[in-house]
């Protein structure tokens, strides 16, 4: 049986590339500004949400054997 972590790594590698590239582009093209509190707050919320999904999926794999 293949490692249960392979899909996890595949998904979050590709999605993270897309996720980070868009954030960098948005900042570079001034669609958002990290100097403004509102934009910074939204950006942090989005990153936090993404980390929640990564963390939740990792926990699900770890607890599958429980």
């Amino acid at each position: 049986m293949m490692s249960p972590w392979l899909p996890f790594i595949y998904q979050y590698t590709i999605c993270s590339f897309f996720f980070i590239a868009i954030i960098i582009l948005s900042i570079k093209k001034k669609a958002i500004s990290i100097h403004h509190p509102t934009d910074r707050k939204i950006l942090l919320e989005i990153i936090a949400g993404y980390l929640i999904f990564i963390f939740a999926h990792a926990l699900m794999i770890l607890f599958a054997g429980a």
């Binding site: 293949m2 249960p4 899909p7 794999i61 054997g65």
Partner: peptide, 21 residues
């Protein structure tokens, strides 16, 4: 296997992770 959040990477043909992704 039933409790995992992702299906196996490339099988079975009708519900594999990479295709669904």
């Amino acid at each position: 296997e039933f409790k995992l959040p992702f299906s196996p990477f490339n099988k079975p043909p009708d519900f594999n992770f990479v295709g669904i992704f």
